[in-house]
């Protein structure tokens, strides 16, 4: 097996660690492809517990990647989440960052993933 070069992650490639966390990544990805969704929908789609979602949403909301609105739908209270433009851009940039990182690894350590 090829060993990676020590210069594996160059400093110019910064991974957004807020999105890099798997639970937040899957939440962001699911919100990216819809206009809005509520708590229950996200729990169903991600398989995360309600507690997990609450914790991660608080982090995402604090960074303005997600907006939260409490509303009434069909006379029932709902907590509805939307990804913000900032969040969309951050996810797009994260995708680019990961792509750049993998390309860098492939260049410096060819065959690493074979």
């Amino acid at each position: 097996m090829n060993r990676p070069d020590t210069d594996l992650v160059p400093p110019q490639i910064e991974i957004d660690r807020l999105i890099h966390e798997p639970a937040r990544l899957i939440i962001m990805a699911n919100l990216y492809v819809v206009d809005e969704a509520d708590f229950v929908y996200l729990a169903q789609r991600t398989g995360l517990t309600h507690g997990n979602i609450s914790t991660h949403m608080a982090r995402l909301q604090a960074s303005h990647y997600v907006s939260v609105e409490k509303m009434f739908l069909a006379n029932r209270p709902r907590t509805v989440y939307r990804i913000t433009e900032e969040g969309r851009l951050a996810l797009q940039q994260y995708r680019q960052q990961v792509g750049d990182l993998l390309a860098h690894i492939d260049t410096h350590s060819p065959g690493m993933f074979d």
Binding site: V33, D35, Y41, Q44, L73
Partner: peptide, 15 residues
Amino acid sequence: KRFVEARTGYVKFTE
């Protein structure tokens, strides 16, 4: 819609 949302939650897909 009421039947499904009571079980899978609310989602609004893109325009």
